Computed example of a mutant assay.
Amino acid sequence: MESLPLTPYDQQHVQVFDALGRSSWTFRMGDAIAHLIADEAGDLWVGYFDEGVYAKDSLSHPGLRRWSSTGEPLWSFSPGPGLIDMSDCTALNVDGETAWACPFMHYPLIEVRGDGTVHVRPTSVSGVRGLAVNGERVVFLTGNSTLEHGRITGTAVEPTQPTTSLVRPDGKVPGPSAVVCRGSRIHLRERGGTDWSVVDLGA
């Protein structure tokens, strides 16, 4: 009998490889993954976009989750008192065992510590695509090339200086880019290119 093709909800789309490059095991994390970053403990933080949050796959519904490297769900975002819905995780940064995220549409800065403690701080930014954190300093990448600077307090993110713009070494403004954020750095690779640029808040 001919087997039926796998549906998207059956696919074991995460593969873990050993030091020799051999596939060790596979598992599912849900649909519509926008960001996937490992923390220093080896756990995996995953941010989902709206097509997963509001679709049929329940693994994606929280919008932000933490998984073990073997596929065990360790933590998921849940809007409670004072917490905004995670309708679309537009930016994700992992530093140590702490994750920082910004969801559409009001773009608060969400801090999730390794023990699962969550802090939500309102911001005045919009259209966030990336973020870097260094102590109480934070910078948000909005659009393709705009940097919004702020200071993290106990209750909010306060703007600290006028916006600045990214430019390439040739003086041109970068175009649409793939964005990966870790700690004080935002890594960007322009669409169709192979070079990476780095914004380092700690430099």
Rank of each mutant, 00 (worst) to 15 (best):
residue 162 P to W: 03
residue 111 E to R: 13
residue 89 C to W: 12
residue 147 L to M: 11
residue 203 A to I: 00
residue 6 L to F: 15
residue 199 V to P: 00
residue 145 S to I: 08
residue 123 T to W: 07
residue 84 I to R: 14
residue 22 R to C: 06
residue 1 M to Y: 09
residue 57 D to G: 01
residue 155 T to I: 15
residue 145 S to H: 13
residue 152 I to S: 05
residue 87 S to E: 06
residue 39 D to R: 00
residue 182 R to E: 05
residue 3 S to V: 06
residue 33 I to W: 08
residue 24 S to F: 06
residue 83 L to K: 00
residue 89 C to K: 10
residue 137 R to V: 05
residue 161 Q to S: 14
residue 25 W to P: 00
residue 142 T to W: 07
residue 155 T to V: 14
residue 163 T to W: 02
residue 9 Y to H: 08
residue 129 R to K: 11
residue 51 E to D: 14
residue 104 F to R: 07
residue 30 G to E: 02
residue 113 R to S: 15
residue 159 P to R: 07
residue 191 R to Q: 12
residue 38 A to D: 11
residue 139 V to F: 05
residue 69 S to W: 11
residue 96 G to K: 14
residue 24 S to K: 13
residue 72 E to G: 11
residue 75 W to P: 04
residue 58 S to L: 01
residue 43 D to P: 00
residue 122 P to I: 05
residue 16 V to D: 03
residue 71 G to C: 03
residue 171 G to P: 03
residue 27 F to V: 04
residue 4 L to Q: 09
residue 198 V to C: 13
residue 66 R to K: 10
residue 154 G to A: 13
residue 88 D to L: 02
residue 118 V to N: 07
residue 146 T to S: 07
residue 112 V to N: 01
residue 73 P to N: 08
residue 169 P to M: 03
residue 74 L to P: 07
residue 119 H to N: 09
residue 81 P to S: 09
residue 4 L to V: 09
residue 129 R to S: 11
residue 21 G to Y: 06
residue 75 W to I: 01
residue 83 L to H: 04
residue 91 A to T: 00
residue 203 A to K: 11
residue 148 E to P: 00
residue 157 V to H: 06
residue 3 S to Y: 10
residue 95 D to M: 03
residue 86 M to R: 06
residue 167 V to L: 01
residue 81 P to H: 02
residue 67 W to N: 03
residue 41 A to T: 14
residue 172 K to H: 13
residue 157 V to M: 07
residue 102 C to S: 13
residue 51 E to I: 15
residue 24 S to W: 04
residue 68 S to D: 12
residue 43 D to R: 02
residue 19 A to C: 05
residue 102 C to N: 12
residue 116 G to H: 08
residue 83 L to N: 01
residue 163 T to S: 15
residue 191 R to A: 07
residue 37 I to S: 08
residue 118 V to G: 08
residue 153 T to R: 06
residue 173 V to S: 05
residue 87 S to T: 07
residue 57 D to H: 03
residue 84 I to Q: 12
residue 27 F to Y: 13
residue 36 L to Q: 09
residue 186 I to W: 01
residue 146 T to P: 02
residue 71 G to P: 12
residue 86 M to L: 11
residue 57 D to F: 05
residue 149 H to W: 15
residue 52 G to C: 02
residue 79 P to T: 04
residue 21 G to C: 04
residue 81 P to C: 00
residue 108 P to C: 02
residue 195 D to E: 15
residue 134 N to M: 13
residue 88 D to I: 01
residue 11 Q to P: 02
residue 88 D to F: 12
residue 180 V to Y: 15
residue 152 I to K: 04
residue 76 S to Q: 12
residue 169 P to V: 05
residue 35 H to M: 09
residue 137 R to M: 10
residue 34 A to W: 14
residue 12 Q to F: 13
residue 141 L to C: 03
residue 46 V to K: 10
residue 156 A to E: 15
residue 167 V to M: 01
residue 138 V to E: 10
